[in-house]
Simulated scan of single mutants.
Amino acid sequence: MAKTLNPSFSALYSYRIGSYYFHSNNRLFKFLGSRMRMKLIFKMNCDISFLAKIGDRLRLPHPLGVVIGAGVEIGNNVIIFQNVTLGSDGKKGKEKSYPKVGDNVIIYADSIILGNVKIGDNSVVGAKTFVTIDVPPNSLVIGNPCKIIIKN
């Protein structure tokens, strides 16, 4: 019972069920999917696009303020803390490009990852980091502008 009251579980459950409904061919299910998204946005303050590709075991310890755009790809075992934005760089005249997050990545609070950026496997994005460049695997990225520190 306690697990269902967890905000992280609630947000991801709403996302997974809503995504299933949204990708259905049934008009009623599509409507239910859009209602689940509105619940995510208004009740949980969490905006996750149903067009994003999210791997297994995503964890959102504090889902408030998390924004995941339409073309974002997230790997397995990723942890995303509050107020993180994963989205397009919004450049006009080009096709919108979104970040790709590898496996076993941790993204700490208030980080922003924009554009066609790849976050390598086993990497850590520090709090309040603005990432617009590729991050190699097994590294730590911190600061604004971001600085890459290779882990051993």
Rank of each mutant, 00 (worst) to 15 (best):
F42V: 15
I113K: 00
D47N: 14
I119C: 06
K53R: 14
G87V: 07
P99I: 08
S97L: 09
M44D: 14
K53D: 09
I48A: 02
K147P: 06
N83S: 10
N77W: 10
V117Q: 09
N116H: 10
V117W: 10
K92E: 15
N122E: 12
G102Q: 09
F42G: 12
F42D: 15
A127Q: 11
G55Q: 08
S49C: 10
G65W: 02
N138D: 13
L140I: 14
E73K: 14
I142Q: 01
N138M: 10
F130D: 02
I142A: 10
D110Y: 05
C146Y: 00
A52D: 06
G102M: 12
D134H: 11
Y98L: 12
N144C: 15
I107W: 00
I74R: 02
Y108P: 01
I107A: 04
G55N: 03
R59S: 15
V124F: 02
G143P: 05
H62M: 10
Y108A: 08
G55E: 10
L64C: 08
D56P: 12
K96I: 08
N104E: 07
I74D: 03
V125M: 10
Q82M: 05
K94I: 13
S88V: 06
P136T: 04
I48W: 00
S88I: 06
G102A: 13
E95N: 14
P63Q: 03
G115W: 07
N122Q: 08
F130W: 11
G115D: 05
L114G: 08
V101R: 07
E95V: 14
V101C: 09
R57H: 10
I106S: 00
K91H: 11
K94T: 11
F42N: 15
I74W: 01
K53L: 05
D56F: 11
I74T: 00
I106T: 11
V105A: 02
I133T: 06
K100A: 10
D89R: 01
G93Y: 04
S111Q: 07
V131A: 13
P136M: 03
G115V: 09
I106H: 03
V67T: 07
V84A: 01
K100P: 09
D47Y: 05
V124C: 11
S139G: 12
P137T: 07
D47F: 00
D103F: 00
C46W: 06
R57A: 15
A52F: 02
L64P: 01
K128L: 04
T132G: 11
I112V: 15
L140N: 13
L64Q: 12
I119A: 11
G120F: 05
I133Q: 11
L58N: 09
S88C: 09
I113R: 00
D89H: 05
L86K: 03
I106L: 01
L140M: 14
I41C: 11
L140P: 06
K96A: 13
I112S: 04
G115F: 03
G75N: 03
V105K: 07
P137H: 14
I133E: 15
G115R: 05
F130K: 00
A127K: 06
Y98I: 03
V117S: 01
K128R: 13
K147E: 12
F50P: 00
